[in-house]
């Protein structure tokens, strides 16, 4: 339990180094994910959950380390994208459309661009 809380704290702390808008989105997401897994007790669900968040934190720490300045995030594995069914692929495309223009600087900018204005 303590390990989970330390992971949670570590992720929220790493998000502090993100541009304001990315931090907001990231905090919301990690909050809802951890909260929705609170009651889960089965190792077969918990182990991959913590493994994924641990690797996310390691990547984020690496990318936000002072001096790297390379921006954050990574591209989706094309092999994984190929395995998505149509609904999931459509959702992903929708997410791409919605987020496009909100952050075209790949997260490296200290001053995030204004939110997109949709017609």
């Amino acid at each position: 339990m303590t390990d989970a809380l330390h992971l949670y704290r570590g992720i929220l702390r790493a998000h502090r180094l993100l541009p304001r808008e990315l931090r907001f989105v990231g905090d919301q997401y990690v909050r809802s994910e951890f909260r929705s897994h609170r009651a889960v007790t089965e190792r077969r669900f918990l182990d991959p959950f913590f493994a994924q968040w641990t690797s996310y934190l390691a990547l984020l720490r690496e990318q936000t380390r002072a001096g790297t300045g390379a921006g954050v995030g990574r591209h989706l594995d094309p092999a994984l994208v190929d395995r998505l069914d149509d609904d999931k692929a459509e959702q992903l495309l929708e997410l791409h459309r919605a987020s496009h223009g909100a952050d075209d600087s790949s997260g490296g900018s200290a001053v995030p661009p204004p939110p997109p204005r949709r017609k």
Partner: peptide, 25 residues
């Protein structure tokens, strides 16, 4: 416990300090 982590972190930010895990717990 998740809320408590968030509150303690908000206190960190309010006072511009970082609290080590073992202390924050």
């Amino acid at each position: 416990s998740l809320d408590t982590v968030e509150v303690v972190m908000a206190i960190e930010e309010e006072f511009s300090v970082e609290i080590p895990d073992d202390e924050a717990d």
